[in-house]
Design a protein around this nucleic acid. Structure first.
Lengths: 254, 254
DNA sequence: CAGTGGTCTAGACCACATG
DNA sequence: ATGTGGTCTAGACCACTGG
């Protein structure tokens, strides 16, 4: 599946350096050689080195200080970056729980007006809607609703086929990429807290403590052409997992 | 205070182009001139144009498609990006509410063990701790706790001075930058949902509905040397404001 | 002052999408 | 085949930091 064409030089450098961050050559906090030295060592131009270092800096793997040098970051990896899409399976198994998955209900229906607006489709067009649950050691951890417009799947899957419980993969973005040829480029999400008793479930689901805190992520997924492809609500129950985030200030300091 | 030295060319280009996105020259969805044309038009090298466009692409202002062109993003600005630090004042007034601020309590004390660990200080060293509340139309919207180690303020402000209610500015990162010469470079935050009844308040505060959902952001602020400078908890009550976030998938699709 | 990263140039070639 | 963005080079000069 991968033609495996040669990766760009700058990315090769990124990989090499990242390797050296973990193999002890450049431990956290240490200073890297200067750009000129790196360029010389790897036989590339300084611009290429700069490109690699810029990428590492954007990822937070190194810190650059003008007039001083480039340093390996100390506080490197963060746990479950909220600004990246969550792989529920890894999320649950990484914390030592047993992963469980439940297909609750699927239907073809008309979208609610807000959803039609968000997906930029007519309110009287059809959408496919599916509800799923993910459990950790049998306990409800995540409840999701996914809605896609008809045009997204129509040419690839029949209405009959898509309604089958095992038709859509647990991770919906994989289903969209693999089965609908509509990979998602990015999501725009809103995040809010909620209480379990305010969540309405579709499908047969074990009851949860009505006072459980819930993190609700409501988002629209767009393809590379910025066309809305997916409306999704994720409800994450309780505190059994936490999400992290790097925040920066873009505000000018008075 | 600003020597106002000339901004880099690439940033000037960024500003110019951003202006054209809103003045109708390049409306959302439209295609920009090619890199070569832009370089020619502004009398700079193609590398400079590329640098500007890369910055715009990173901000989400444009979309680049290899072999096709550069396009102005349609779904551009998002409301209250959760991955940027919040200016409470703007947050509240932007939504038409009246901004209110309350200094609740300040003290010099010993840190809890988790906090000492997070700040990388000894558990028996001193910290300054302050609690504040922000209201919208008089209703509690945000409750914050800020903790800084002694070394951060010691050389700039006396213990006596810092305990005065109007000593620290409402926005704590401004206080750190302006009064302590310790600007914060970035925060590492954990986000979780909570219920108001589980929040313990310090200081005199009007009671809130115990079942109100709360978004809790617990974070450590680091300076440019990656040294922890600030421990902070922000509790955001209810749904009167929402936070948005761009999410991407870095997971390989199977 | 020396050494670092930051900006910029002019030119070359490659990879991709489209007609 | 054409035009686009993606990668890379070699060299120059500037701006910041620290001894």
């Amino acid at each position: 599946m991968k033609p495996r064409r040669q990766a760009p030089l700058s990315e090769q450098i990124v990989d090499i350096l990242q390797g050296h961050f973990t193999d002890g050559t450049y431990p956290p906090g240490s200073q890297l050689p200067s750009e000129a030295e790196l360029a010389d060592a790897y036989g590339v131009s300084r611009a290429t080195i700069r490109s690699a270092l810029a990428q590492l800096a954007a990822d937070g793997a190194v810190k650059r200080r003008h007039g001083v040098g480039t340093f390996v970051s100390k506080s490197t990896q963060i746990a479950n970056p909220l600004n990246e899409v969550i792989d529920y399976h890894d999320l649950i198994t990484d914390q030592g729980f047993e992963f469980g998955f439940q297909h609750l209900e699927a239907e073809i229906t008309q979208p609610a007006p807000e959803i039609a607006t968000a997906l930029k489709i007519d309110a009287d067009s059809s959408v496919f809607e599916v509800h799923k649950a993910f459990t950790a050691d049998g306990e409800l951890l995540i409840y999701t609703t996914n809605v896609i417009p008809e045009w997204v799947y129509k040419e690839h899957i029949s209405d009959e086929e898509i309604l089958k419980p095992d038709s859509t993969e647990p991770l919906f973005f994989e289903f969209l990429a693999n089965r609908c040829q509509q990979p998602i480029d990015y999501y725009i999400a809103t995040v809010r807290p909620e209480i379990a008793q305010n969540i309405t479930f579709v499908g047969d689901i074990a009851p949860v403590d009505p006072l459980l805190p819930v993190l609700v992520i409501e988002e629209v997924g767009y393809n590379a052409q910025e066309k809305p492809v997916l409306y999704e609500v994720e409800c994450l129950f309780g505190h059994r997992m936490t999400f992290e985030l790097v925040r920066r200030l873009r505000i000018a300091i008075r």
